[in-house]
Write a protein that binds this DNA or RNA. Structure first.
Lengths: 154, 154
DNA sequence: TCTTTCGTGTCAGTTTTCTGACATCGAGAA
DNA sequence: TTCTCGATGTCAGAAAACTGACACGAAAGA
């Protein structure tokens, strides 16, 4: 549809553009978070916990787009550093809820300043309407990609 | 601007949505390429070489959004499998251009079918106009993120 | 009740990617 | 020419992520 040729035109492909934008965002966020000794996944975990306290390891993994095994080692680091707590008493079945500590909240606050400046820079030149349109388009893409039964024009 | 609160609203954040969309795309592409024994970086490398024959290791790395060290190990695998060639005679200075072999072209053709179906599925429900708008918005974001001097409203 | 199914936490090993470092080569300035 | 600077290819080690596997517990169905 987009091009009858043999390959996928990287200059025009929305998939490639999406990956390029995501890569640029990741690079910018890593640069902003490095002075704080934090990685993007690090920050994502803390931000998720701030907005939804008590999230489990698996839920955090899904929210940060990594496997639960990867999130588990990250949580061990965060717990060792005193940024989060996972009191064994709160266990519900196998699920072990996680909470931010005061130190974790402080570190998150500093990181949020850095991340917010990156996000603001990314939106430079985009009107509020364009941002709204972008949200709708991205949500549509995500829904289509996750729907295995979507018609693909076969 | 988007929210005066302490954190960044993940439900609304374009940065989070961008990461989410990119993750969904990567998952879908990996699922589509797995039967072919190919990863996304694998495919990206071949597609780049098809469109711009003779690309160097560093140029391929930039195009696939990985370090040149990572691309180097990938190229060694591709060369061992006979998908690409890097004849030492073509060396210009330190730069060693890479070319697709016939086998590489065949493997790429099969992969392109799989990837194209994923991209088509991603665009399900998006009009041509919306796709064009999305391209413009993503390009704007990329440019802003890469411009270190962009005003951020501090 | 019993059973099956699914999600979860966790252990182990492997793979991939990255950071750091070095020598080399070409382009441009002095 | 000579020198500096930037980019490249490459080696080595470290960090991050993944896949595979297992046992446990809860929820749903027979």
């Amino acid at each position: 549809m987009s091009r009858g040729g043999p390959g996928i035109d990287l200059e025009t492909s929305l998939g490639y553009l999406l990956k390029e934008a995501s890569s640029a965002l990741r690079v910018a966020m890593e640069a902003a978070l490095r002075p704080l000794g934090m990685t993007v996944t690090h920050y994502s975990c803390l931000e998720l916990l701030a907005q939804r306290p008590g999230l489990s390891n698996s839920e955090l993994a899904r929210g940060a787009f990594v496997t639960r095994q990867s999130m588990n080692v990250l949580l061990q680091t965060l717990e060792r550093d005193g940024d989060v707590t996972r009191p064994a008493e709160d266990r519900v079945g196998k699920v072990l809820p996680t909470q931010l500590t005061a130190r974790g909240r402080e570190r998150l606050a500093a990181a949020t300043v850095a991340v917010r400046s990156v996000e603001t820079r990314m939106l430079t030149g985009l009107s509020v309407e364009e941002q709204s349109v972008a949200r709708g388009i991205l949500r549509g893409m995500i829904a289509s990609l996750r729907d295995p039964g979507a018609r693909v024009g076969g």
